[in-house]
Design a protein around this nucleic acid. Sequence first.
DNA 1: CTCTGACGTTCCAGTAGTGACATGTCGAAG
DNA 2: CTTCGACATGTCACTACTGGAACGTCAGAG
Lengths: 184, 184
Amino acid sequence: MSLRHALLGLLSEGPASGYDLLKLFEKSLANVWPATQSQLYGELGRLADAGLITVQSEGARGRKEYAVTDAGREELRHWLLNVKPTPIRRYDMLLRVFFFGQISADDAIAYLREQQQAAEAEAERLAEVGKMIEPHQDNFTVYGRLALEWGLRSNRLHQEWAEWAIGEVRAHDPAANTEPCDPS
Amino acid sequence: MSLRHALLGLLSEGPASGYDLLKLFEKSLANVWPATQSQLYGELGRLADAGLITVQSEGARGRKEYAVTDAGREELRHWLLNVKPTPIRRYDMLLRVFFFGQISADDAIAYLREQQQAAEAEAERLAEVGKMIEPHQDNFTVYGRLALEWGLRSNRLHQEWAEWAIGEVRAHDPAANTEPCDPS
DNA sequence: CTCTGACGTTCCAGTAGTGACATGTCGAAG
DNA sequence: CTTCGACATGTCACTACTGGAACGTCAGAG
């Protein structure tokens, strides 16, 4: 049910259309809460039905500009202050680790290396995001930077953990390749 | 579609009933991939229909003991080696951070403190898990420890980030309370 | 002998999310 | 004047997951 509040949050800084919100989403919240277009429009409809937002004006091309109502603002506040965030624990990356017994130590190490590389790629992407938002000083950007920092730290963790895990796998099976490109 | 492979993975160490798997799940994989009972039984049925597992024997109380087939083992291997893990990026905890502009700096700091406390509680839980699995040396436990370490590091990250973020919020609004219990 | 608690399975209604498709408008460039 | 890309919304079928109810069996304690 967080998409609801994501939309309320975006609208709380000013009215916007579904299309506007979609673009805004891609550039900011999608990093912490992805949503598809169909989901977004659907939720806007439900939000309007529930009286948390209203169609402020209709423009060209069927554009509907939505604005938060008082009830919506109240709901957002309530969610921010009183609803406990649900911790995530769904990592198919870690799930695979449990089954390392089913593959060779070399394959396990290759898998971990891949994770490291994925993390490097992600680090670049995050750096891009950082550069993109650098000049802005609006509320979303200012506080979004806190989330970005989380991403950067998380990324570092990912890389360091993979490095450590490779060491563990090696320790467990000393026969595993030390130099993956040169099995001598 | 990861539950499928989680079950294949569990069964790859030996046959078991749905009930057995449910118990096993709770103690291990649920930390990285939660699933409910109804989901589990449903998936077992589909897995059997697909020929990836078979009913090896039926015991008392309608118990069905499942075992992996060759096709199932192949599917597991394929998933382990060739299917890229999907990165998670759905953190309603971070989503709220974007909307800090809607609440006071004090409330924002209180929110972050709560996150810190939640992380502390989680740290205790993880320590418990560590103690519980300490004596075991089976495959799941050995490799599960890699996942546990990820959890511990992730937890530390959570706490340190919250501490840092509190500093940022304070820097942004110096009027915010320094001592939350003594607003002098 | 009865009750309880662990064992064991099945079904279902509801929600959230995915990915693709359908439909149409408007402004600007060529 | 046509076409193309951005603007703009809506719908559908499908899958994953949630939470709960329902049903029945067996072993052991009292």
